[in-house]
Amino acid sequence: QTVHVKGVQYHFPNPEEAVKFALKVAKDLGGRVEFHGDEIHVE
């Protein structure tokens, strides 16, 4: 599972961890989380 944050990719073997990370980052940055297939983008 890959999380993209402002052009940087973070790889997580566990999808659940990836989602938790993405939600935390989005909250910290005041952004939103978008799901694109296997990828999660924080915009």
Results as ranks from 00 to 15, higher is better:
residue 1 Q to H: 14
residue 1 Q to S: 14
residue 2 T to H: 05
residue 2 T to F: 07
residue 2 T to P: 03
residue 3 V to Q: 00
residue 4 H to M: 12
residue 4 H to G: 03
residue 4 H to D: 04
residue 4 H to L: 13
residue 4 H to V: 15
residue 4 H to F: 15
residue 4 H to R: 10
residue 6 K to Y: 14
residue 7 G to R: 04
residue 7 G to H: 06
residue 7 G to K: 04
residue 7 G to S: 05
residue 7 G to V: 02
residue 8 V to W: 08
residue 8 V to Q: 11
residue 9 Q to S: 12
residue 10 Y to K: 03
residue 10 Y to R: 03
residue 10 Y to W: 07
residue 11 H to Y: 14
residue 11 H to Q: 08
residue 11 H to E: 07
residue 12 F to C: 03
residue 13 P to G: 10
residue 14 N to V: 06
residue 14 N to P: 00
residue 15 P to A: 14
residue 15 P to N: 12
residue 16 E to T: 10
residue 17 E to Y: 06
residue 17 E to I: 07
residue 17 E to M: 10
residue 17 E to F: 05
residue 18 A to K: 01
residue 18 A to N: 00
residue 19 V to A: 07
residue 19 V to Q: 09
residue 20 K to Q: 12
residue 20 K to D: 09
residue 20 K to W: 08
residue 21 F to S: 02
residue 21 F to T: 02
residue 21 F to Y: 08
residue 21 F to E: 02
residue 21 F to Q: 02
residue 22 A to S: 03
residue 22 A to F: 02
residue 22 A to I: 02
residue 22 A to L: 03
residue 23 L to P: 01
residue 23 L to Y: 14
residue 23 L to G: 05
residue 23 L to T: 11
residue 24 K to E: 13
residue 24 K to H: 09
residue 24 K to C: 07
residue 25 V to W: 10
residue 25 V to Y: 06
residue 26 A to K: 02
residue 27 K to G: 10
residue 27 K to S: 12
residue 28 D to T: 11
residue 28 D to P: 03
residue 28 D to A: 13
residue 28 D to M: 13
residue 30 G to L: 07
residue 30 G to F: 07
residue 31 G to S: 05
residue 32 R to N: 07
residue 32 R to Y: 13
residue 32 R to G: 04
residue 33 V to P: 03
residue 34 E to V: 15
residue 34 E to F: 14
residue 34 E to Q: 11
residue 34 E to H: 13
residue 34 E to S: 13
residue 34 E to A: 12
residue 36 H to D: 08
residue 37 G to R: 06
residue 37 G to L: 07
residue 37 G to Y: 06
residue 37 G to T: 05
residue 37 G to K: 08
residue 38 D to V: 09
residue 38 D to R: 10
residue 39 E to T: 10
residue 39 E to D: 12
residue 39 E to K: 08
residue 39 E to P: 02
residue 40 I to C: 03
residue 41 H to S: 06
residue 41 H to L: 08
residue 41 H to W: 14
residue 42 V to F: 03
